[in-house]
């Protein structure tokens, strides 16, 4: 797992700022939404990296940067040794084949006027050399079978499928070009629990069978724990803590991770009143105007004056055995205090 050659994705210093403009004819830039503001991440072969954080913290923007749907303001994304950010034209197209995305909403992400066969086979139209024309129908049927759908339904339309089945269609499309990496942006958030389990199990099976690497984004910390090997916690465009799933869930060191974990309800009434509840005040500040120093300080119960003008780096610290972006990082097991 530690072998460098296992590295399939390496992102460094990723930044995405969306300009805020004023005026209609003469637009002038009056600020920027700092959606992603300096993110490093590495992904190894066959591994799942979970990314958690509350809405607006930049998860989807990060996903789009990784698959090339958005251009970063700065930073590098290396896939199999090639820097995606510098590539263009056919070289970029080829490199992108290796990293595909599954979106959240199975209802809006599929074109209602296209058949399932056309939707799943669409990547072949963009990358004609991937599969010869004569073999495409076969390939699509194999994909349908692979994700547990009936290959005979190739000519049906999305509305003829349930939400869970549509998500399978989205997964089949992502697999069409045989990528090594799949970025899943909230792939089960819109699904009911009984259907969620079906899709999670499918993703796990595909990973085993095809040796895929996943970036798995979700706001549901239980789902992320279930599926991830390593986890990164995001707050206002930055990763504030990262490590092995056991480290993040059982030995969290960043106050935000601790608060997040303590707020998640656990489906076991016996834990009622026996859990560590950290109640955060207020809402997440705007990414257009993040607090100085530590971005979490406006909601942090441990904040000191020092935090207001010294930005904490994401690093291993004396009392934090895995990288944590807090000056006062310290383990607090919020889940197992009964």
């Amino acid at each position: 797992m530690s072998d460098v050659s296992d590295l399939v994705l390496d992102a460094r210093g990723l930044v995405k700022h969306f300009p805020i403009t004023q005026g209609i004819v003469f637009k002038s830039k009056i600020g920027a939404v700092r959606a992603v503001d300096g993110v490093d991440l590495q992904l190894r072969r066959g591994e799942t990296l979970g990314i958690v954080g509350e809405s607006g913290c930049g998860k989807s923007t990060l996903a789009k940067l990784l698959v090339g749907l958005e251009k970063p303001t700065s930073g590098e994304i290396t896939v199999r040794g090639e820097n995606m950010v510098r590539l263009s034209g056919p070289a970029l197209r080829r490199a992108r084949r290796n990293i595909q995305m599954v979106m959240q909403d199975p209802y809006t992400s599929l074109n209602p006027r296209m058949t399932v066969g056309d939707i799943i086979g669409e990547p072949y139209a963009i990358h004609p050399d991937a599969v010869p024309r004569s073999g495409r129908e076969r390939a699509v049927q194999e994909l349908l079978d692979l994700v547990g759908l009936n290959p005979d339904h190739i000519n049906r339309y999305p509305h003829q499928f349930s939400g869970g089945q549509r998500q399978r269609i989205g997964i089949a499309r992502a697999l069409a070009l045989r990528p090594e990496i799949i970025v899943c942006d909230e792939p089960v958030s819109a699904l009911d629990v009984s259907i969620q389990a079906q899709v999670i199990n499918l993703l796990e099976r595909l990973q085993r069978e095809l040796g895929l690497s996943y970036i798995f984004i979700a706001h549901d910390l239980s789902v992320v724990r279930h599926i991830s090997d390593r986890v990164a916690v995001m707050y206002l465009g930055k990763i504030v803590e990262t490590g092995h799933h056991k480290a993040i869930y059982e030995q969290p060191t960043h106050p935000y991770t601790q608060a997040l974990l303590s707020a998640v309800p656990v489906p076991d009434p016996r834990l009622r009143g026996h859990r560590d509840h950290i109640v955060l005040e207020g809402d997440v500040p705007s990414p257009a105007n993040p607090p100085s120093g530590c971005r979490f300080r406006t909601r942090c119960w441990k904040a000191q004056p020092y935090c207001a003008d010294h930005e904490p780096l994401l690093q291993v610290r004396q009392r934090a055995p895995h990288p944590s972006a807090c000056h006062y990082a310290e383990i607090r097991d919020v889940l197992h205090r009964y």
Partner: peptide, 18 residues
């Protein structure tokens, strides 16, 4: 339903599917 949900407080095995 109870067997199909992932847990926060431990990493479970394969989820039971309905």
């Amino acid at each position: 339903l109870l067997e199909s949900i992932p847990r926060l407080d431990h990493k479970g095995r394969e989820l039971n599917v309905i």
